[in-house]
């Protein structure tokens, strides 16, 4: 059974330029009611030295990762079984390196692709000339704290949508790029669909390779798709034709970490191949269903509403279902 759990997918400790110890980071994650994190220090996995493959620190499972902090863009690599040298990757050769990571059983994610680059944030803008997007597993579409306020968010969403329209299958993540905790901020969660809710190299790889993620700024979104008698998980492929997507909003889970930021969901939308095909007011009630005709390509769930005093903000975003 697939169980979705909330994660913070982009973190740093003092092993790179963060200020947390791993224990402090996990305690902070617990305060935000995450059920796991990915530790992705810049260009090092020394934070895992001497620890099991997926350590559990103060009750928080830690996904083994590294942030490739290159001169031409940043990428996360999760659970690679051997070191692939980030220093040699260049814009025109990046496909060779993502192929090496895949060969090492690793997961590849592009992060903060539209953050300002050099000289303000060295290498932060994604300049790699990726041709083989099939070697990339996910894109961090919501980057940093308060993603609803950032101009980069719609740019990354458009980049991801364009890749989906071109036929690539990529999951979505949010990442706070958490280096230290100055004050409590609004931070999104990446819910990962894990087999039996277990956090391990095998289940995390399986979740990302099969596209089982969704993002939320507020309520948990339990998403079910049925076509005929069959049920489908996010990331799976349906036949063209009628289907029913149901959404249950759980407004209690992690409520204390988001309600003070004025998060009010108002609308749910089904977006297919870049176009909204149906929508529903979700201000009241928790359970919603959408009947629509799946067409070749992809479709995903989006949630809109208020955040941090602004309205019309994207508050939820699922990885796609696909249609033959």
């Amino acid at each position: 059974m697939i169980t979705y759990k909330p994660f913070e997918m982009h973190t740093h400790t003092y092993n790179s330029d963060g200020r947390f110890t791993l224990e402090e980071l996990c305690d902070a994650a617990k305060a935000y009611e995450y059920q796991g994190i990915a530790l992705t220090d810049h260009n090092t996995t020394s934070g895992f030295d001497g620890l099991p493959e997926t350590p559990v620190i103060n009750g928080i499972p830690v996904i083994r990762g590294i942030e490739w902090t290159t001169f031409f863009g940043h990428m996360q690599v999760l659970y690679a079984e051997k070191f692939v040298d980030w220093r040699r990757a260049k814009p025109e050769t990046i496909d060779d390196f993502t192929a090496q990571i895949k060969a090492a059983n690793g997961i590849v994610g592009v992060v903060h692709p539209f953050e300002v680059g050099s000289p303000m944030c060295t290498g932060c803008y994604f300049d790699f000339k990726v041709q083989k997007w099939e070697n990339v597993d996910y894109i961090e579409v919501w980057s940093k704290a308060e993603p609803t306020r950032r101009y980069e968010t719609p740019l990354a969403l458009a980049m991801w949508t364009d890749l989906l329209n071109r036929g690539y299958r990529l999951a979505v993540t949010a990442g706070r790029d958490w280096h230290w905790e100055k004050k409590k901020q609004h931070a999104a969660a990446t819910y990962i669909g894990l087999e039996d809710g277990i956090v391990s190299a095998r289940t995390v790889r399986d979740a990302f390779r099969n596209g089982r993620t969704y993002l939320t700024c507020g309520p948990r979104m339990d998403i079910t798709l049925r076509q005929g008698d069959a049920a489908y998980e996010i990331g799976q492929t349906v036949e063209p034709g009628c289907c029913r997507l149901t959404v249950s909003l759980d407004r209690n889970e992690r409520r204390k970490v988001w309600e003070e930021f004025g998060i009010t969901p108002r609308e749910l939308r089904i977006v297919m191949n870049g176009e909204t095909v149906c929508s529903a007011d979700c201000l009241n009630g928790d359970d919603f269903s959408f009947d629509f005709t799946a067409q070749k390509g992809w479709f995903r769930l989006e949630m809109y509403g208020d955040a941090l005093g602004e309205n019309g903000k994207q508050l939820g975003l699922s990885s796609p279902f696909y249609c033959k």
């Binding site: 810049h42 260009n43 030295d49």
Partner: peptide, 25 residues
Amino acid sequence: GCAHRHSPVMDHIISAEYSSAGFIR
């Protein structure tokens, strides 16, 4: 490993029993 930090002056240790931040033992 790598010491990805902004201080322009740094000291590091690498050994079998202890390594400083960013480096494995």
